[in-house]
C-alpha cells in the first residue's frame, strides 16, 4: 500500500485533494497526565480499506482509535476524517480550538464505533439498540428505522433475536448487535476496538465472520485486534504500533512474514 505523503508538522493537509482518503492522522500526540501515550503517530486510511492496528497492550493503538472519533482530545497534530478536521476547528490565528459538542456529534454520526465490551443499552431490545441512533439522530420515522434495524440484524444473523434484551444474548450475539447498531448510522468508516477480546473463544468466529463480510462489501474499517489470523486474511494493511509510534506498516504478508523491525519481530514472536 502506498505510503501517505509526508506531512510537515503543523501543515494542514487539504483533504479534498485526496478524495479517497477517509482518515488522515498526522503527527498525533496524546498524553494522559505525565504519560505520553501517542508520540507522533501518522496514519492514512483510504476508502474501502481494512487497516488492522497491532501492538502490545499499552502501545497506544486503542488510544489512537479513540482519537479518530474524538473520544480523546489530542495534544498535538491533526486528524482529518472525510477531509474534515475532527473535534477541532482553526481559529482566526490558525490555532486549534475544540469544536462545539453538537458539531462533534454530527461528525461522529458518520463514524461507527464497536467497543470491546459491546456497551449495548441493557434496557432496550436488540432492535431498539439498533434503531435508537437513526431515530434520534437522523430523525428517521419509527417504522422506517425498524425496517432498517430488522434488515441489519438479519445481516448479522440475528433476525430471531430482534426483541431480545442484551442480558439474554451471548457475548458473540451482543457484539453482532453492536455491529448492527454501528451500521444503522450508515457510517463511512467503522472503528473496532478489540471487538473479540472479551469473547469466549467459541464466539470469536461468528463476530469475525460478520466483519469479514463487511470488509468484502467494501466497508472502510480500522480494527484494533489481537486476531492475527483475521488480520492476515482480511487486512489490506497491518500497522504495528509500539510505544506510541508507528513502527512499521505494510501488507499482512510483509508484516507477518518479513517484518522489517526488531520490535515487530519480538511482538509477533511472543504471540506464537
Amino acid at each position: 500500500m502506498a505510503q501517505p505523503g509526508p506531512t510537515q508538522r503543523g501543515e494542514v493537509p487539504d483533504g479534498s485533494s485526496a478524495p479517497d482518503v477517509i482518515v488522515h492522522a498526522s503527527d498525533v500526540h496524546k498524553r494522559f497526565g505525565s504519560v505520553e501515550v501517542l508520540k507522533g503517530v501518522s496514519l492514512v486510511v483510504r476508502r474501502g480499506e481494512v487497516v488492522v492496528l497491532i501492538g502490545a497492550s499499552g502501545s497506544g493503538k486503542t488510544t489512537l482509535l479513540r482519537c479518530i472519533n474524538h473520544f480523546e482530545r489530542i495534544d498535538q497534530g491533526r486528524i482529518f476524517v472525510n477531509g474534515r478536521l475532527i473535534g477541532y476547528r482553526s481559529d482566526a490565528r490558525g490555532r486549534l480550538v475544540e469544536e462545539r459538542a453538537s458539531a462533534i456529534a454530527r461528525q461522529r454520526a458518520e463514524i461507527g464505533f464497536v467497543f470491546q465490551h459491546f456497551n449495548l443499552y441493557p434496557n432496550k431490545s436488540a432492535l431498539e439498540n439498533v434503531t435508537l441512533g437513526p431515530r434520534k439522530v437522523r430523525k428517521m420515522p419509527r417504522l422506517q428505522a425498524e425496517e432498517l434495524g430488522r434488515r441489519l440484524l438479519q445481516r448479522v444473523g440475528l433476525e430471531s433475536k430482534v426483541d431480545v434484551h442484551p442480558a439474554q444474548l451471548s457475548g458473540g450475539q451482543k457484539q453482532r448487535v453492536a455491529i448492527a447498531r454501528a451500521l444503522a448510522m450508515q457510517p463511512k468508516l467503522i472503528l473496532f476496538d478489540e471487538p473479540t477480546s472479551a469473547l469466549d473463544p467459541e464466539m470469536i468466529g461468528e463476530v469475525l465472520a460478520v466483519m469479514r463480510d463487511l470488509a468484502k462489501e467494501g466497508m472502510t474499517m480500522v480494527v484494533v485486534s489481537h486476531e492475527m489470523g483475521f488480520a492476515r486474511e482480511v487486512a489490506d494493511r497491518v500497522v504495528m504500533i509500539d510505544d506510541g509510534v508507528v513502527v512499521e506498516e505494510g501488507s499482512p504478508a510483509q508484516i507477518f512474514d518479513r517484518p522489517a523491525h526488531e520490535r515487530t519481530r519480538s511482538f509477533l514472536a511472543k504471540l506464537l
Partner: peptide, 20 residues
Amino acid sequence: GQFEAAMSTGMSPGQAMRLV
C-alpha cells in the same frame, strides 16, 4: 461506556444523558 456508545452513534451529550 453507555454514554460513549450513545455518543458514538452521533448523539449530543444532552441526548446521550436524556435518552441513554
